[in-house]
Every structure is written in structure tokens, then in C-alpha cells.
Design a protein around this nucleic acid. Structure first.
Lengths: 214, 214
DNA sequence: CCGCATCTAGTACATATGGACTATGGCTTC
DNA sequence: GAAGCCATAGTCCATATGTACTAGATGCGG
């Protein structure tokens, strides 16, 4: 553990709420020459403090955390004076999460099932200014872009469909006519290429278009 | 890292497809006196082989893995000559997964967000024949038991609802009348206490009653 | 054997849904 | 200013869905 601080080491800050993962990345990365783990945070808030203190080169972060989400953390970092490069390391791939992470400024996106060697390669890549997105993830992202995206209003309505509201209830909740709610839902069904509101709801969850109810 | 093999050490086999988690548990547990990690497997099949070779005292396993699932592994272990104690360590809690894991013979159930100390305590507990289920998990399990469970047929039909099939399509697929399919779905809606098939579908996913489509 | 749950099937009726349209006003973009 | 997208709203109509019943067959535990 007594890794000497060398000026040329890539200084890494870990952000993950799982103690197991922090320990795993810590022990895995600190044995690699040229890498140095300079800290570990379990929440986004804690991460922001440590970034100021430690000025890491690379931030390795999970998206799903209690409190501030990884996406919010990514956005917050961009407004800081010396933003580290950011590499997302998360468990499950949802098209929407990937998209939002990249949009929020992440330089790389990895799954926790990634082998050690590739994690190291990705850290080195983003540190030197390159991006690192595995082909499989890139393909999902591309598909997400190609698929005509839902409008804000449609997403809003889709969330209500997921909650099981009827067209009438949706119309009432949004103060629009039932007809309009129905029109939006028909657009959603066309765009998602599904056969009805129920499949639209499950597809929305599967693709991460809406957050799951608590 | 040169932990001496002591006869009284609790010998632990790790089963997880995430290299990061294997490394994390390995480094975390091998520093604890009285514990010894005797191997790590990335699949259920590999785990079965290592169990025969190493005869571990405790198996620390994830449920979601490529190939054989953790549940299948738990069941397979029970038929073996010298079954280790089993402790499930997984990321997300789904009522149904917890239930099935306990039913399949797991002595303990932990989340990956569990602090190190509790993981160690749980290992020691299951090794000495006790069970270890955190209160929050136990509460969810209890709720699951109280809620009148769906029948096998209803689960089968619920899965089709999740896929977006209509009552007619479900009836045809199962070679029963549309009326019967509809009756089952109405039972499902009553039991899950939801307002329609769409909410039933999303509730099913949220509660882990059905597997998400690929 | 009785009671109970389950699966099956049906009827009848009210309501919800989806498809195929038209149309208008606001807004951005070229 | 023309073109396009979006949100809004509507009509018509066929079909799907949910509710409230009844009821026969089967199997299982007491």
C-alpha cells in the first residue's frame, strides 16, 4: 500500500458507494506501475470535496449512488476550476444512462464486468485525452441516437403510462385533453416500435427511458 | 498476501463475474485474521469444479452471472457431497430474487453496498451454522411472503403481459380461451393491487416477478 | 369424503385503447 | 417567409380491456 508518490503517476480518485468495489479497484490499480489511487469517495458530495483537495487526474465513478447521482456529479465537475478526466464504471448498461453520462461529459464508459487490463487501458486513454468506449457500448449508443428520440412531453407522458395511469388520468394530470394524451401515446408507440402501452412501458424501463418507481 | 494456511481459518470461495468485485473481496477478506480466500470463480460451472477441489467452508456468490445463475448454483450445491455454507452477495435487491435465493438454500443475503465489517460478520455467522439476513432484507422478504403469491400459471401469463401480448394472443399462445387468459389477468391485477395490465407489468418488473426481456 | 384452490370457460356490459385521419397555433431553422 | 417540428384538439370506428358474475373439472390436504 505504500506506493511512492511519483510526479508522473496518474492520480485516480474512486467514487463508488460499494465498499467492495472501492477495495477491489484500490487493490487492483495500486499494483499497476504509473497509476496511483489518491482517494476514494462513497458519495458525489464527498467526491467534490476530495477533487478540490487531491486534484486527481482521473475520476473513476459509478453512476448509481445514494444522494447525488453520477450524472449530477459529472455535470458539477465541469464547472470546477481543474476538472479531472472522468471514466464511468458501472454495473448495468442502460442506453439512456450511457447517453446521459456521455452527454454530461464522461470521457469513457466501462462495465464492472470489464477485465482488469481493459480498465487500466481505459484510465490511460482518458488521461491522455482520448476517449474510451467499448464497441458494444458504442453500438448501443449509436442505436439510441438513430432511434428517433422521444420529446420531453412524450417522456413525461411515458412515465405516467409506466405508473399505470389511463389516458384520461394523464390528460387530467397534465391539464390537456384525453385526446391529446392519446395522440402523444400513439407517437410513443410508433417511435418505440411497440404494439401497445404495456409494451411501451416495459420497453421504457428496459431501455432506461424512465426511472423505476421507488 | 502470504497468508499462512491455518487449519482453523474459514476457507472462502468467491463467485462473481466482475473482476473488480473478486479483487475487492479478495483484498478485503484476506487481511482479516481467521479468514482465507481459497479461490475465485467467475461462473457457476467454474465454481462447482473449485468446490470439489478446494472444499471451501463458505461460498460467497453473486446471483447474476452469465451462464448458470446463482440460484441454479445454489441448488446444484445442495446435491453435492460436502456442500459449503452459502452467502449471497449481490447488487440490487429484488424481492423475488431474495426469496428464491433463500428457498434455494442460501444461509445469508447481503448487498454489495454492505460495509466490510458486516460482510465479515456474516461470513463468520454462516460458517458457524447461523443465518445472516439484514433487517431491511428480512422485511422485504416478509412482505413478499405476506402478499398472496401468484400461481405458476399467473406468472406465466404475467410474463406475456410484460412482453406486450394481448389477451387474445396470450390465449392462443397457451392454447386456452381468451376469456381464461383474461380471468387470470384479472386475478393478477387483484393480487398485485394494481389498476391495469400496464401497471401489473411494471410492478412485475420492479418486484422481480419476471425476468426482463433480453 | 369434504372443502379449498386452481384452471378452465363462459356471458354481459361499460370503458379504454389504438389507428387513421384533419387541423391550428407557436416556435425554430433555413 | 416557407418549411418543419411540436403540442394541442378533435372525429370515427374497431378492438381490447376490466368488472362482475356463474360454473364445471381437477387435484390436494385434512
Amino acid at each position: 500500500m505504500a506506493t511512492a508518490k511519483i510526479a508522473s503517476d496518474i492520480r485516480i480518485l474512486l467514487v463508488d458507494d460499494h465498499p467492495v468495489v472501492r477495495a477491489g479497484l484500490g487493490s487492483m490499480l495500486s499494483t499497476i506501475a504509473g497509476l496511483a489511487v489518491c482517494g476514494a469517495a462513497s458519495t458525489g458530495e464527498e467526491a467534490l470535496q476530495l477533487i478540490e483537495l487531491e486534484r486527481p487526474d482521473v475520476l473513476l465513478l459509478d453512476l448509481r449512488m445514494p444522494g447525488m447521482t453520477g450524472i449530477e456529479l459529472l455535470k458539477a465537475i465541469r464547472t470546477k476550476p481543474f476538472p479531472p478526466r472522468t471514466l464511468v464504471l458501472t454495473s448495468y448498461e442502460s442506453d439512456e444512462e450511457i447517453y446521459r453520462a456521455i452527454e454530461a461529459g464522461a470521457q469513457g464508459y466501462l462495465l464492472k464486468s470489464t477485465p482488469q487490463a481493459e480498465i487500466v487501458a481505459a484510465i490511460q486513454a482518458v488521461h491522455s485525452g482520448r476517449h474510451h468506449i467499448p464497441p458494444r457500448i458504442a453500438a448501443r449508443l449509436a442505436e439510441r441516437m438513430v432511434r428517433s428520440a422521444l420529446t420531453q412531453r412524450e417522456l413525461e407522458i411515458l412515465e405516467m403510462v409506466v405508473r399505470g395511469l389511463t389516458n384520461k388520468q394523464i390528460g387530467h394530470a397534465l391539464r390537456i385533453s384525453e385526446n391529446t394524451a392519446r395522440n402523444h401515446i400513439n407517437s410513443i408507440i410508433r417511435k418505440l416500435d411497440v404494439s401497445g402501452r404495456t409494451e411501451a412501458a416495459t420497453a421504457a424501463i428496459q431501455q432506461g427511458l424512465v426511472r423505476m418507481p421507488d
